[in-house]
C-alpha cells in the first residue's frame, strides 16, 4: 500500500480535528464603528414623508414600514400596513424576522426621528441593510401629508406641485374625498413577508 495514503488520512484527520484547537477568534460580522459613523453622517438613510406617501399610494411592493413605537401607540394610529416593532423588543426572538427580507426596504418611523434613528443604528449594527428612517416621523407626516400648508402665493411652482400632491395624498389617507384611489377600500401595500432565503431552490 502506498504510504502516501496514510499521510493523507492523517492530514485530513489533523485538519478536521484541528478546528477544535484553534484559538478563539472574534469573527465580528458587524459593521465597524468607523463605517457606522460614516453611514450615520450620511443623510441617505433618511427618506422623506412625501416619498413614503407616494410609495404607499403607488403600492410599491418593496416598501416595508416598521413602527418602532410602543404597541399601544401603534394600535392607536399607524401608517397603512406598517408592522409594529417596538424599540425595546428589537432584540427579542422573532421580531427581527421583519428585517433583512430580500428586496424589501424597511423604513423605520416613530413620532419623531429619535427612536427611529436608534432602531436604525441597532439594526445596522446587527448587520441589516436596506433600512431607512422616515425623516421627521409621524409628526412630520401629519404636518406635511395629512394637513399640508398652502404655500405663499409667491412660492415657486414646484412648491405648488408638492402641495397638490400632498393634498391628494391627504385625501387618500384620510379618505375624505376619494378621487385618486378608486379601489381605496382595500388599498394595501402588497408586502410579501417571509421572503427570506429564496435562492431559487438549488439542486437539480
Amino acid at each position: 500500500m502506498n504510504r502516501n495514503y496514510i499521510y493523507l488520512s492523517i492530514l485530513i484527520l489533523i485538519l478536521s480535528a484541528g478546528v477544535f484547537f484553534l484559538p478563539e477568534r472574534d469573527n465580528n460580522q458587524q459593521i465597524s464603528p468607523e463605517e457606522l459613523m460614516l453611514q450615520i453622517m450620511q443623510p441617505t438613510h433618511y427618506i422623506s414623508t412625501d416619498a413614503v406617501a407616494e410609495m404607499i399610494i403607488e403600492k410599491d411592493p418593496t416598501l416595508e414600514l416598521i413602527d418602532v413605537r410602543p404597541i399601544d401607540e401603534y394600535n392607536e394610529f399607524s401608517l397603512q400596513n406598517a408592522y409594529n416593532l417596538p424599540l425595546d423588543s428589537i432584540m427579542a426572538e422573532g421580531y427581527q424576522d421583519y428585517l433583512g427580507i430580500e428586496d424589501l426596504n424597511a423604513v423605520f418611523y416613530s413620532n419623531d426621528d429619535i427612536k427611529a434613528d436608534q432602531a436604525w443604528v441597532i439594526a445596522k449594527r446587527l448587520g441589516y441593510n436596506s433600512i431607512y428612517v422616515m425623516k421627521g416621523g409621524l409628526n412630520c407626516w401629519i404636518r406635511t401629508i395629512i394637513q399640508p400648508e398652502r404655500p405663499e402665493e409667491t412660492a415657486s411652482s414646484e412648491d405648488f406641485e408638492l402641495y397638490n400632491f400632498r393634498r391628494g395624498a391627504s385625501q387618500y389617507f384620510s379618505g375624505i374625498e376619494i378621487e385618486i384611489a378608486s379601489d381605496d377600500s382595500k388599498s394595501g401595500v402588497n408586502v410579501v413577508r417571509k421572503k427570506k432565503k429564496v435562492v431559487a431552490e438549488g439542486g437539480c
Partner: peptide, 26 residues
C-alpha cells in the same frame, strides 16, 4: 465532501465566508 466541509469550517473561522448566507438545503 470532507474537503469541502473542512474547508468551509476554516473559511468560516478566518471570516472569509459568512455561513449564514450559504444556502442550506431545507
Amino acid at each position: 465532501l470532507i474537503v469541502a466541509m473542512v474547508g468551509l469550517l476554516y473559511f468560516d473561522y478566518f471570516g472569509w465566508i459568512n455561513l449564514d448566507l450559504v444556502y442550506i438545503l431545507p
